[in-house]
Amino acid sequence: MKNAAQTAFSATSSVLRTIGMTFMHSFRKRETVLYPEEKPYLPPRYRGRIVLTRDPDGAERCVACNLCSVSCPVDCISVVKGEDETGRWYPESFRINFSRCIYCGFCEDACPTYAIQLTPDFEMGEFNRQNMVYEKSDLTISGVGKRPGYNFYRVAGMAVGGKDKGEAENEAKPVNIKTLLP
């Protein structure tokens, strides 16, 4: 009997206490960020809208290798390769369908030239779905993005127009594979 009374008392008081505590929340600060008026801070490595960056020299970084397109889990990137007179590859068209993109960042990881990068911007709503398909001109920015000073052709072991193998910055002569000598 005493036990039952105790249980009844503790149960009742716990319910009343809960109600009181909930009511006291009327006087707390609200946690909501009122978004359009008050923008949240997004860190630089936030995975948002995808851009194509340029060299410090102003040339396009993308070499149209299609690795981003291959790594994309939702197949939203389509690249068409082109070749200029010096033998360098460049994308003739570069198209990302942002209505399919899941912003996973695999393309950024796969890119050998740091051309494709994700930026801290997510406000890309459109009324027309077709407007979510971004062409190369929409994607390309004039800056270097998150990799200042990096130029693929200056560090890569590739012979292309105007530069032979091993002639680039920080690059050793290629190893002669026909000899055993060091």
Binding site: T22, F23, H25, S26, R28, K29, R30, E31, T32, L34
Partner: peptide, 8 residues
Amino acid sequence: LGLWQDRY
């Protein structure tokens, strides 16, 4: 409900 759950 918003008021009591610290939101708007």
